[in-house]
């Protein structure tokens, strides 16, 4: 017994040391970006900025915030993340539940249809034409509908539902519960941790995407997202330092360098999505028992 405890303590100590090490090396890129975002851009060019800014300045952020449309961009990003995650999560869960029902007649067909979506794609041109035909150009729903469900998430969730005890659902059926009741009252609550994870995946993908804005909504200022605006700023700054076409050359005052703007942008767009995590993290705690559901 003592042997075991000793071994376990050793395990715990090495575990903590390992985790601290991991924490340090994974924290580095983020701190590095933060330091660069707060460092004078001309000084950054010299290299060698690691964890702390050498010549502190707010200028990079100031440059980012001189751009218009950031507030609308944030609102649209927030809205698409909220709506996209809510609808996406519900849809994913419904599909996953239906194809987890072993006796469902069309199970194989539905499964196959959703598996294939992960590996086949028509390409950009047909998708663009479809969106146009459906009247989704410059329409908020183009952010939600085409990417509503990801096959990946469906099958991860279904794999988890498969591990739930069948007896639970059967006894509920005997009690006269409908499919919908079983789905809402039994399956969903039991899947909370996985659902939280999928919600995080969807939310991050929604928050980070800018390409759909570029392709489908760049014609409507009120619909552009924060990431899109950030991409635009980055491109502007990059081209301002390389092109002399627009009367921008060494004879005009320099703009902040692309590296510095990239860093500031990373921080600006990452902070909001980082704030989501603590809310989801409470679902990642141990101690869930089936007993609670049974009663």
């Amino acid at each position: 017994m003592r042997q075991v405890k000793k071994g376990e303590r050793l395990f715990q100590i090495s575990l903590y040391l390992f985790m601290i090490f991991m924490g340090l090396i994974t924290l580095y890129p983020f701190l590095n970006v933060l330091a660069i975002s707060l460092n004078d851009s001309l000084d950054t060019i010299k290299g060698g900025v690691h964890l702390l800014p050498r010549v502190f300045t707010w200028n990079n952020y100031r440059e980012v915030f001189t751009y218009p449309n950031l507030v609308t961009g944030f609102n649209i990003s927030f809205l698409r993340t909220a709506v996209g995650t809510g609808l996406g999560l519900l849809s994913t869960a419904m599909v996953a539940y239906v194809i987890s029902c072993r006796e469902f007649v069309a199970r194989r067909l539905v499964t196959a249809l959703f598996i294939l979506t992960m590996y086949v794609s028509g390409g950009l041109i047909p998708e663009f034409m479809l969106v146009r035909k459906l009247g989704l150009m410059n329409n908020f729903w183009v952010y939600i509908l085409p990417g509503l469900i990801s096959g990946w998430n469906v099958f991860v969730l279904r794999a988890y539902i498969d591990t739930l005890p069948v007896s639970l659902m059967e006894s509920a059926k005997l009690d006269g519960a409908s499919e919908l009741t079983i789905f809402l009252r039994i399956v969903l609550p039991l899947c909370k941790p996985i659902l939280a994870t999928i919600a995080l995946f969807i939310a991050v993908a929604q928050w980070n995407s800018w390409f759909d804005t570029y392709i489908y909504c760049s014609g409507k200022q009120a619909l552009t997202t924060l990431q899109y605006e950030m991409m635009r700023i980055l491109q502007d700054v990059t081209s301002a330092t390389t092109s002399s076409m627009y009367g921008i050359n060494e004879y005009n005052a320099p703009r902040t360098s692309p590296e510095s703007i990239q860093a500031a942008i990373t921080i600006v767009v990452t902070i909001p999505i980082l704030l989501v995590y603590p809310f989801l993290q409470k679902y990642f705690v141990k101690g869930l028992t089936l007993g609670a559901i049974k009663s």
Partner: peptide, 27 residues
């Protein structure tokens, strides 16, 4: 990395266009 070396003042010669090294020269 290229700009950093130039900005540190230790690259003697280049075969480049001004708009490419200008930022480092400014530093």
């Amino acid at each position: 990395q290229y700009k950093a070396k130039i900005a540190q003042g230790r690259v003697l010669a280049l075969t480049d266009q001004r708009w490419e090294y200008e930022e480092a020269e400014r530093a």
